[in-house]
């Protein structure tokens, strides 16, 4: 019997009914099961939790009314919001902490203030964004750059934060 839509929406697999085995992506042999914890790890790789949270926040910024900040700012533009999501998907790694997602008068900003690092990615339009990176431990040079289609400096900064 097929699950009702309501049940399907809230369905979470259990260890009993995960017929996968071996390295991720390989087909399970008949009767094999994959440890639930490993399946969850695989699931998180496919659809990480931060993705839903980031999407929900960005959509809420797009839906805001004019003057949301009391200073006449417009809501986040749809194309800017979607590019911001692309930026986040491009730089996030499995162990990267969730950034604060903050609306600005001209776009949206992702920011991390932890592990001795201040890192901000401010997206103001498709392929219009900037990075601000400061390492308070003195191990890495500060970065302040306007960016377009080059994600390298942002990836590197997020990588430094993630590995710490």
């Amino acid at each position: 019997m097929a699950a009702s839509p309501a049940i399907a929406l809230h369905y979470r697999p259990t260890e009993v009914d995960v017929p996968l085995a071996g390295p991720f992506g390989t087909r399970a042999a008949s009767g094999e099961t994959l440890a639930f914890s490993r399946f969850r790890s695989y699931e998180e790789t496919v659809a990480p939790e931060w993705h839903q949270e980031a999407l929900a926040k960005i959509v809420s910024f797009i839906k805001r009314s004019r003057n949301w900040d009391g200073y006449g700012s417009l809501p986040l533009r749809h194309d800017t919001g979607m590019f911001a999501l692309q930026v986040l998907m491009a730089v996030m790694q499995p162990r990267t902490p969730m950034p604060s997602i903050v609306p600005s008068p001209s776009g949206v900003q992702f920011e991390w203030h932890e592990k001795g690092v201040d890192l901000e990615l401010h997206v103001t339009g498709p392929y219009e964004w900037e990075i601000w990176f400061e390492d308070h431990t003195g191990q890495c040079a500060s970065v302040s750059e306007e960016l377009s289609s080059n994600f390298a400096s942002a990836r590197e900064a997020v990588s430094i934060l993630t590995k710490r």
Binding site: V102, P103, E111, H113
Partner: peptide, 11 residues
Amino acid sequence: HPDQVVPDKNT
């Protein structure tokens, strides 16, 4: 704005 107040885990 409340959404522009963020935690600073460094401090």
